[in-house]
């Protein structure tokens, strides 16, 4: 058993150098980031790191004894293979503590070229069972897998009993209702998807329009939602719109909501989960600060006294403020959600 398994790492998002420093200052054990291109699944304008920023980020985190993980979690496309392999080379050169990969071809490159580089399986690898995780372990020596947000806790536990690979779970943030890596809804509507371009429902396809029947959000012309005067608006992620199914209009796929598993902390620790991940590299440093601070406090409290752990209302209140649609859910960890 590796010591870090017991440590229960808090893995926080950084879309920029200020966000990275904020995450470190507020108690993240690991920070994850991406380069400024389509090699990662948050490929948004103005976000992410060039080489200089990445180097400074690694220096800052390492000086304080924290780790930096690099997300290279899109699927290299035929025309850009070198972009992905250079990113691997850069990760090794920068001294990244691990790279988070989804593509087997890229994993093979990494193991051959940089055998010392630690590999994590990205959630975009869609590994929902131990046979799949062990596949990546046997062939590429992955050390940790981030499991898609679709398993119930009992299923996660069953999976953990059958693999030597560490398991990292999403604890908080924007919720994918679909299995990550198995969703092409965005490219169906806009031509760009997480797998191919590192984006979902890309901002350039979004249009807001005030109409007689309300404020409308559209994605490449497709009506995703329409809001009444007193309703809160949300980003038109296409699975979180209101649609008409058999004459009934509702959130047919998922409500705009955030995953929040704070109350599951004692259970996750007992199970031996290696790390808990906070979603949101596209969010502001203020979000990163707030979420990291609350989770640091909660994890420390839970570790001090797991039996007596209770979620403080103040924590939920703080997290509620930064949640999408101001709603929170346990997602698939709680079976009736399915």
């Amino acid at each position: 058993m590796q010591p870090e398994t017991k440590k229960f790492e808090l893995v926080c998002p950084a879309g920029s150098l200020p966000a990275l420093k904020t995450a470190v200052d507020n108690g993240a054990d690991c920070v994850y980031m991406g380069f400024r291109d389509d090699t990662n699944a948050r490929n948004f304008t103005g976000l992410n790191f060039d080489l200089n920023n990445a180097r400074e980020g690694v220096r800052y985190a390492h000086a304080k004894g924290r780790k930096v993980l690099l997300a290279l979690n899109t699927y290299p496309q035929t025309s850009g293979w070198q972009r992905w392999t250079s990113a691997i080379d850069n990760a090794a050169e920068l001294g990244m503590d691990a790279v988070i990969l989804a593509d087997p071809g890229l994993m093979k490159y990494a193991t051959k070229t940089h055998p010392e580089l630690r590999l994590h399986l990205s959630v975009q690898g869609s590994a929902t069972n131990y046979e799949a995780i062990n596949f990546y372990h046997e062939h590429f020596g992955i050390r940790r897998a981030v499991v898609p947000r679709v398993l119930a806790l009992a299923q996660v536990e069953q999976l953990m009993a059958n693999t030597p690979v560490e398991i990292e779970l999403f604890g908080f943030g924007g919720l994918c209702v679909m299995v990550e890596g198995r969703c092409a809804l965005s490219s169906y509507a806009t031509g760009e998807s997480p797998n191919t371009c590192g984006v979902c429902s890309p901002p350039k396809a979004v249009r807001w329009q005030e109409t007689a029947s309300g404020l409308e959000s559209r994605l490449n012309g497709i009506l995703i939602d329409r809001y009444g005067k007193d309703e809160n608006t949300g980003y038109p992620t296409l699975c979180k719109g209101r649609f008409d199914v058999a004459g009934e209009t509702y959130y047919a796929i998922e409500e705009p909501t955030s995953l929040n598993t704070l109350e599951l902390l004692p259970e996750l620790m007992r199970m031996g989960v290696a790390a808990i991940k906070i979603e949101g590299r596209q969010r502001s440093p203020a979000y990163v600060a707030q979420v990291t601070k609350v989770w640091r406090e909660a994890i420390d409290a839970c570790r001090r006294n797991t039996e007596q752990f209770v979620v403080k209302p103040a924590w939920m209140n703080e997290l509620g403020k930064v949640s999408e649609g101001q709603q929170q859910t346990l997602g698939a960890y709680y079976r009736p959600w399915k």
Binding site: Y75, P76, Q77, T78, W81, D103, G105, L106
Partner: peptide
């Protein structure tokens, strides 16, 4: 998710 010749 076979998107490149290396994985194929």
């Amino acid at each position: 998710n076979i998107y490149n010749p290396q994985t194929l």
